[in-house]
Design a protein around this nucleic acid. Structure first.
Length: 580
RNA sequence: GGGCGAUUAGUGUAGUCUGGAUAUCAUCCCGGCCUUCUAAGCCGGUGACACGGGUUCGAAUCCUGUAUCGCCCGCCA
């Protein structure tokens, strides 16, 4: 209701001066009503009572009386308990709603475009993708979609783990197995097995461990044969990642890959620049930066950011610093966003601090760690399969689709064949994504099949079902959906008004969601809209409305509701089926 | 030991930044509603701000203390 506040505020200023109230006194008091059914906008008058030396109830009554005539056709005014309440006038609301019929953006305004790098997903080469990667991928993708919609230039970067000491043992293991055998068995979800085999050999076989260590040296020396073998591992892995991304329906592809290896030539530069800035210190043979302040370790000693290890190798902090240099200087981005779990909060705080102090970025750049909580099992532990392994992401997605398929079979036996497969996929994947996006991302959540695939409650299937119901109405309608663009909307009932309010508030909810990078705010709004639709659907006949005027008005509301749902879900990376 | 965060009906959640009225939504449970556009739906009912102090006309929200829980403090990423 920010539009209503915007429209009313100057009129309120004008009309309260005669009461001896000036702008400063009242401007901070005008805000959204906290008692939903009573009003859209409220002004609590308790603090004004001291200035005017009257009771809050009296003040609210006077203000209400004073502003009422000035808000004709805009809002209905009343007062209660010392609050002035403004409720959107049905005609104003109807007009606002109609404006959206021809607006593809559903009232959302584009921002001045910024160049934003979003770093998300980040699986490891030659390792399985597990649920740990789910949140980063799903949340990151939603944020990317929202930022693009808002008019920004977004550069997706998938910072895959494709470099470092483990590759010595992985490459040697690849040699032992034979490339043919590896690439053909890639079948593909056997990475955990592959990695484990290499690890076991490394730990138990000294000769193998020695080979692995020499191989790391060769890799870092960019020996061509070693690089070729490394590339085999990378290619097979990225091929696998793409399958998962395709299944999940996220935007990431090969062009977005910027693995750790991509920054390897920048690492010495990081050291040099830190050295030049005088921040680098030597400690036990390693090169480190001490930030001081709250950064102390277990023993209370200063706790360093390690830039170069004692053995000359680089640390992940170095790689992240190189990344910042690359993003600021090569890409010249305005904003850096990292969609990475909460456990790495301190790491990013320290890296950002080092980068600012060293001048890798300045006031023009903002770096944000978009953190998120863990996915837990029903015992409150990090989600693992029974064998104690992390659950494979593909297996999880396949199961979700299967469960969705079963649910459809039961609920709509008429739906079969290709349509059914397609819709099972939309529902299964949508359910997993929505469960991840619909609660505050900074909190942990418990993975629960029954809840996420339920067709009741704040779930993707409920929203998708609402969308399918509306699509059904249009498939039976004598009036085409396209013709809705210039329909006239009139709000006859309470239910229509509530629904219209949701539709009009979509843009505001979206803006709050993206400015705080909290997708769940958008989820909450879509759910409220769907729920308002369901109530409207029960109470107001649409195709059987008493006359054509009412029917088209209601159909227009249906069209807008469906667009709120489908646009909203689309921005979250979830599809809206036209039937279920 | 230090740092960070969490705690809201039986369960799960929103609201906390920016203090405002009767704390959101959902689920569970109980009771109603299908000869009418998809009942996968709708309507009604029961039920919660961890505990103590402070600031304020007013605190779930701000400050502070306590308890419980989680995470981080690796020359792993």
């Amino acid at each position: 209701m920010r539009d209503l506040i915007e429209a009313c505020t100057p009129l309120i200023y004008d009309s309260v001066t005669e009461l001896g109230i000036n702008e400063e006194d009242i401007s901070n008091l005008i805000g959204p009503s906290t008692v939903g059914t009573m009003a859209d906008v409220a002004i609590p008058c308790h603090s004004l009572s001291r200035i005017l030396k009257k009771s809050p109830v009296e003040v609210s009554e006077q203000i209400s009386t004073a502003i009422s005539p000035h808000l004709q056709g805009l809002a209905l005014t009343s007062s209660m308990n010392g609050f002035v309440n403004l409720k959107a006038h049905p005609e104003w609301l109807a007009n606002k709603t109609m404006e959206l019929l021809a607006d593809k953006m559903m009232g959302i305004k584009k921002d001045a475009s910024r160049k934003i790098v979003v770093d998300y997903s980040a699986p490891n080469v030659a390792k399985e993708m597990h649920v740990g990667h789910l949140r980063s991928t799903v949340i990151g993708d939603a944020i990317v979609r929202m930022l693009v919609f808002k008019g920004h230039e977004v550069i997706r970067e998938n910072h895959i783990g494709d470099w470092g000491t483990p590759f010595g043992m992985l490459i040697e293991h690849l040699i032992d197995l034979g490339e043919e055998s590896f690439t053909s068995r890639k079948g593909i979800s056997d990475f955990d097995q592959f990695y484990k085999e290499a690890r076991v050999k490394f730990d138990q076989n000294d000769m193998f461990a020695e080979r692995a260590r020499s191989r790391v040296v060769l890799l870092q020396g960019e020996d061509s044969d070693t690089l070729r073998l490394w590339k085999v591992l990378v290619d097979v892995s990225t091929g696998y990642f793409n399958e998962v991304y395709d299944m999940l329906g996220v935007l990431l592809d090969d062009g977005d890959i910027m693995g750790e290896s991509a920054y390897r030539h920048l690492l010495p530069t990081v050291v040099e620049r830190l050295h030049e800035s005088g921040m680098l210190e030597e400690s036990e043979g390693a090169s480190v930066v001490y930030l001081g302040g709250k950064w102390v370790n277990r023993e209370g000693d200063p706790f360093p950011v390690i830039i170069r290890k004692g053995d000359g190798g680089f640390n992940y902090s170095t790689s992240d610093l190189a990344c910042i240099i690359d993003r600021v200087e090569r890409i010249s981005c305005d904003e850096l966003i990292y969609v990475v779990g909460t456990p790495q909060k301190q790491h990013f705080e320290m890296v950002f601090e080092v980068a600012s102090r060293a001048g890798f970025m300045d006031e023009r750049h903002t770096a944000k760690h978009i953190n998120f909580g863990s996915v837990l099992d029903s015992n409150g532990q990090m989600l693992k399969s029974r064998a104690g392994q992390s659950v494979k992401l593909v297996d999880l997605l396949k199961e979700s689709i299967k469960r969705a398929d079963n649910a459809i079979s039961e609920k709509n036996p008429g739906l079969t064949g290709k349509d059914k497969d397609r819709i099972s996929k939309m529902i299964g994947i949508g359910a997993v994504k929505y469960a991840d996006l619909s609660t505050d991302r900074t909190k942990d959540y418990v993975f629960d099949w029954d809840k996420m695939l339920s067709f009741e409650g704040n779930t993707a299937p409920y929203l998708q079902y609402s969308h399918a119901r509306i699509s059904r109405i249009f498939s039976l309608s004598p009036v085409s959906r396209k013709s809705m663009v210039d329909s006239s909307i009139e709000l006859f009932t309470e239910e229509e008004e509530t629904l219209a309010r949701c539709i009009v508030n979509f843009a505001e909810s979206f803006d709050k969601s993206i400015s705080s990078m909290q997708p769940h705010k958008l989820c909450t709004h879509i759910h409220a809209t769907s729920s308002a639709f369901a109530t409207f659907y029960e109470a107001c006949p649409i195709l059987k409305a008493e006359n054509e005027e009412i029917m088209t008005s209601r159909l227009a509301l249906c069209d807008l509701t469906a667009r709120v749902i489908s646009t909203g879900l689309e921005l979250l990376g979830i599809q809206s089926p036209e039937m279920m």
